[in-house]
Design a protein around this nucleic acid. Structure first.
Length: 267
DNA sequence: ATGACGGATCTAATCCGA
């Protein structure tokens, strides 16, 4: 039984449903987790997904900002969202799947970006980001017989080779030590494994986001790896491949993020 | 200075992203 899971910060699902459809046709994931859908639940283009065989849909949207959705070819046994920081915003969606004898809970996250100034006393957005991450510290990868996968836009590039210039980004939100160390603690305390770096050596530069503001994103290549797929240690042996779809940044009217894909083989 | 842009909304000018 194959579980091919993709995550993609789409930056408006209504604007980009066309490239999402072509991505689904060309790469055929079983499950797609979206962030920044930027619409309310009843505005989500569910019919487009159903037409392509994604009959199981969980949406947690809001007007204009944020919003996460998980669409699947496999049945979603249950879904649930947690309101991190009690802000009433839509940044988390958990969906439960059965895979053979396993029960797998898939977390779809959109962690706050954190604004410009990396100082929680001066910048409430950075304070929000740190409080959100601190609440994620309690999240176990393996609990009561349920194995977990975590995907999404975590808005942190943890390693030196996850950014185009480690030195130049040390004081830039997304790569400051307070953020990267907190993300390491979330991973280690929860027993999570960074699946993308299991397959693509940390010595290689790897990005999943490039700014819209660059003159030529591909030539300047000043990217960051903000989008992640983690799982419990118990699922690592079932991981067959990962892919970061860099080419998607060059598609017509692209998102500034590209899909990140992991494939599991369960027996 | 990566930031020389691109979303959604109160369709004009503003807020937001990272």
């Amino acid at each position: 039984m194959t579980f091919k899971i993709a995550t993609w910060n789409i930056n408006s699902i209504r604007l980009r449903i066309g490239i999402v459809e072509s991505f689904l046709k060309s790469h055929n994931p079983d499950i797609l987790c979206l962030q920044e859908i930027k619409c309310q639940n009843d505005q989500f283009p569910a019919k487009s997904f159903r037409r392509l065989g994604y009959e199981h849909i969980a949406v947690h949207g809001q007007k204009a900002y944020h919003g996460v959705a998980t669409v699947s070819k496999y049945p979603i046994i249950e879904s649930d969202s947690t309101d991190y920081c009690n802000m009433g915003d839509t940044r988390h969606l958990a969906t439960m799947f059965k895979a053979g004898g396993r029960r797998i809970n898939l977390h779809n996250f959109y962690v706050p970006a954190g604004g410009d100034e990396p100082d929680p006393d001066k910048n409430p957005k950075f304070d929000h980001k740190l409080r959100f991450l601190n609440e994620m510290l309690g999240l176990p990868s393996d609990h009561a017989g349920i194995e977990n996968i975590m995907v999404g836009d975590l808005n942190i590039a943890p390693h030196e080779n996850d950014v185009w210039s480690h030195k130049q980004l040390l004081k830039v939100v997304s790569h400051t030590p307070v953020e990267t160390e907190l993300l390491d603690r979330i991973r280690d305390q929860g027993g999570w494994v960074d699946l993308v770096r299991e397959k693509i050596p940390v010595e290689e530069q790897l990005y999943s986001w490039w700014s819209y503001r660059a003159h030529d994103w591909n030539i300047s290549d000043r990217g960051r790896r903000l989008d992640h797929i983690w799982s419990s240690q118990s699922l690592v042996n079932s991981l067959s491949s990962v892919e970061v779809l860099r080419e998607a940044r060059g598609w017509a009217k692209p998102s500034d993020h590209v899909p990140v894909i992991s494939t599991f083989e369960f027996n």
